[in-house]
Structure formats: C-alpha cells, structure tokens
Amino acid sequence: MIDPAKNQLFESQAQVIAYLKAAAANPEFHWTFEDDRCLDYRKLTPQVGVSCYIHCADKILLLERSDKVACPRTWSTVSGYIDKLRLIETDINIFQAHLLEELVEEVGWTVDPTMQLAYGSPDALIKPGVEVHFELFTLTVPTTDLEIQLNDEHLDYCWVDLAELATWDDRLIPGFRSGLAVCGLG
C-alpha cells in the first residue's frame, strides 16, 4: 500500500474511498459528536484527511493551531480528517464535500463564484508512528480582506508572501511545504 518514492499511501482515490467505506462499515470505528455520526479516525492507520492551501496572488493564508489539536502552536492551513459517516456513506465526492465543511468550520467561508477551488493532488505524511493520507486542494480568493472567523482549533491567522515562506519553516506543521509544492504553489 505505501509507496515512499511517491509519498503516497494509496494508489488511487478509488482505493482511498474503498478504505474509508470499509472502516465506516465497522461499528467499532463509530462515535457521535454533536448529533453527527462520525468515523473515529484516531483508530485508523492510515488516517485520511483533506487540506486546502488558500492563496491570493503571491500570498498564502496561514492558521496558527491551538492546543486543542495536534501540532499546537504551529502554522498550517484549513485541514481535517475525513470523519463524517454521512459523507463517506453517501457522497460521491467525499473529499471536496468534507473540505467545504472544513472551510465553513475553520474560517467561516462558503466557497462562492469569486473563489476558485481546485483539486491539487494526493500527498502523505509518513514518519515513524504516523501515516496520514491527504487529498490536497487549492482555493484562490480575490482578496486578502475577506473576513475570517476562526474556530477553537486556531489562535490566529496571517497572510504571508510565498517568497518569504522559507523563513517560516521552523513554525510550519510537518509536511506543509511538501504539500504546497505538490499543489504547484511552492
């Protein structure tokens, strides 16, 4: 399943979806959160998530992670583990549907016609004890003046010039720069 040369955990999106559907079919992996039936992704190896690099011209949006999530006090982007059973069981575009929910949850945005959401590529974070498959997206926004409503997963946000991002390397979540490169932004 793992292909370290390609930094991938699955060979195709169809394989990822089959993996998620098989996990969702097992009640051992279920739990309920705020009346939503969820997949307990913490019990899965590998875990599956989405991540979206939000940019405007030559700037990228960074979100500072709170102590409530993994890798606190590092900077990242909108992301989340695939965990909604209703999406896994019924939606044909699980990844985009979940990402749209994460955008509302983490920054308060609904994608509108002034924004361009595009699928990027799969990527993976593979290191001892950690295997996470990500489906990466990019969101191009028309201005950096959009209102951002952070949830409790984040402490702060900022727009950073892509040319200056290298100075942030010690503050970025692991895999951030490689995902950015996979999406053609870094």
Rank of each mutant, 00 (worst) to 15 (best):
W75F: 07
I94H: 00
C38A: 12
T45P: 06
T74V: 07
F95P: 08
L87G: 03
I94A: 01
R42V: 01
D67K: 11
V78S: 02
W31N: 09
E64H: 05
E64N: 12
Q96M: 06
Y81Q: 06
P72K: 14
C56P: 12
D36G: 02
I94C: 05
L85M: 13
C56T: 08
F33E: 09
L61T: 01
L99Q: 08
F95S: 05
D58F: 02
S51D: 14
Y41E: 13
T45A: 12
L63G: 13
L39Q: 13
R86F: 08
D91K: 03
L100C: 11
E102F: 01
I60P: 07
Q47T: 12
P46F: 01
F33H: 15
L62S: 02
S51V: 07
S51G: 14
T45Q: 14
Q47V: 09
L85C: 10
L62E: 00
D91A: 14
L62K: 02
Y41M: 05
T45W: 03
C38L: 13
D40G: 06
H98K: 09
V48T: 11
G49R: 03
E102D: 07
A57R: 03
V78E: 00
A97D: 05
L44S: 06
S79C: 01
D35A: 15
V50C: 01
T77V: 06
S79E: 15
I94D: 01
T90E: 09
P46T: 07
I82H: 05
K84R: 14
L61G: 00
D83T: 04
A57D: 08
F33K: 14
L61A: 01
D40H: 14
D35W: 08
R86A: 11
C38S: 13
V50K: 00
F33V: 08
D67T: 05
F95H: 01
C38F: 07
L44E: 05
W31G: 04
T32R: 13
L39E: 14
